[in-house]
Every structure is written in C-alpha cells, then in structure tokens.
Amino acid sequence: MGSGADKVSRVALYGILIFLGLLFVLPIYVMGVNSLKPLDEIRGGNLMALPMEWTLEPWATAWSTAQIGVQPTGLKPYFLNSFLLVVPAVLISTAIGAINGYILTQFKMRGANIVFAMLLFSVFIPFQIVLIPMARTLGMLGLAGTVSGLVFVNVVYGIGFTTLFFRNYYAAFPGELVRSARMDGAGFFRLFWRILLPNSAPIVVVTIIWQFTNIWNEFLFGASFSDYKSFPLTVALNNLVNSSTGVKEYNVHFAGAFIAAIPTLVVYVLSGKYFVRGLMAGSVKG
C-alpha cells in the first residue's frame, strides 16, 4: 500500500477518468454556452468561448416564437405533443410488457417459448421495414396524422422490449411465492396486482426509463406518421434547424436542442441509480 508505483498508477487512472468525463460533458458545454450567446458572437468567435454578453433570448425564441410550421409558435406546442405521446405510450407498453412477462413465466402455457421468441424477434425488426404496412394500418384505423396514432405505433414497437424485460425478471421470481398465493386463493389478476407487481419496482423503473428515452427521442415514426399539428418535438426540432428561409440562428438551434434533451436528462439524473440496479437484477438472475 502507498508505494510509489501505486501512486503513479492511481494518478494516471484519475487523469484518464477525468479526461474522459470532460470529453463526455463537452457537447453539453458547447450547447450550453452557445445557446446563451448573441448570434454575432457565434459567427465571429469560436464555439468554445464563454459568452461575452449573456442572453436568454435564444431560449425564449426557441420556446415560443421560432418558425417551425406555418405559424411562428416555437417548440412549445410540440413539446406538449411529445408529452401527450410519451406518457400514454410508455405506460401502456410497460403495462402490456408486465402482463406478457407474467403470463409467459407463471403459467405452463403451451408454446410459451415460441410466443416469446416471436416477441423477441420484433425487437430486431428495423423501423424502416414497418413504415409502409404501419401507414396502411393507421389509415385503416383512422389514426393517421394524429398523436394517438403515434402512441399506437410506439406501443406496438415497444412491446417486444418491455416483454423481454419483464419476462426475464419474472423468470427469476420465487415460484413458491406464486404457488403460495394461488393456494391462498388469489386469482389471475389479484396474483399479479398484489404479489408480482408490488415486488417489481426495479424492472418497472428500467422499463419506464428505457421506453421514455426511446419514444422521446424517436424521429422516424414521428416524421412519417404525423402532420404539422401532431409533430413530436424531435421532428419540430429538425424543422427548426432545417428551415430554409432567412439566416441560420445557431444560438436558437442550440437552445432548441437543449430544450429537447432536458426531459431525458432529468429522467436519468433522477433514476439512473435504479436503472443500473434494475438492469443488473434482470440480467444476473434472468
């Protein structure tokens, strides 16, 4: 302990870690400082410099007055769209995944493994392949161009993942607890509601974070299946950045990107600890 070589390697280790940490933080720094500068400073100076004149103007513009669709509404209505999309899509896909996992593991169902294999396969289907069939389906359901339609698409696409999470978690669930509850008189839903679900906190957190991040950041479905009223935030951000008229307001773009990233950052900061713990629980025991 405490020998010279030890100390050197320790310093080197910390040096590398700090360097890597800074590297990961760098994009946030660049976005942050440039979203707080007037446009002139970005054009004239370098991207790494702190603002000489601090301003919140780009944030206000990005939020409420930037030109995105036909009207200069800013990102605000699309931010709301994304919430209206993400909250039900996450809750519904998580609930279905939990029930699927419960049925696949706790009942001796003929063909359970085949059903699971098929659900698992859906995880590996690229988005592009389902675009056209999905457009037809949404059209037939009368959901084309609506937020509800996007909820439907994201739920369908998420079931594979959520089922995988819950199935692996419940495969390691103590069988004697389930048998005991059955003997005590609990039926299908009460067994799930009173015994399994209250003991599923880690995997519920993992699933919610996973689904929230994926659906919040999802672009292709949003671009394909929504119209100018139902754009999710990612599509709105794209429109903001790619608007072809007038000057490129980079500071507003930075602010807009930052606004779009805030919810996922918040979710990770608040529950990242559970995320790692839950992933471990699922993978190690499953």
């Binding site: 048998r179 003997m183 609990a186 015994i195 003991n199």
Partner: peptide, 26 residues
C-alpha cells in the same frame, strides 16, 4: 388446504399481519 413452504414464501411487500390476513382477504 394450507401449505407451509420451505422458503416460507412470505409476501415481501406485506407486513406480518397483512401476510396472515391475505388468505382470509382472498
């Protein structure tokens, strides 16, 4: 028929009294 399991199979999310009352509640 009631059964006592090797692992005791107590419901971890319930208190002792809720555990004992569970079959009655059902």
């Amino acid at each position: 028929i009631a059964m006592v399991f090797q692992s005791y199979a107590l419901y971890p999310n319930m208190t002792v009294s809720e555990n004992i009352a569970f079959p009655l509640e059902m």
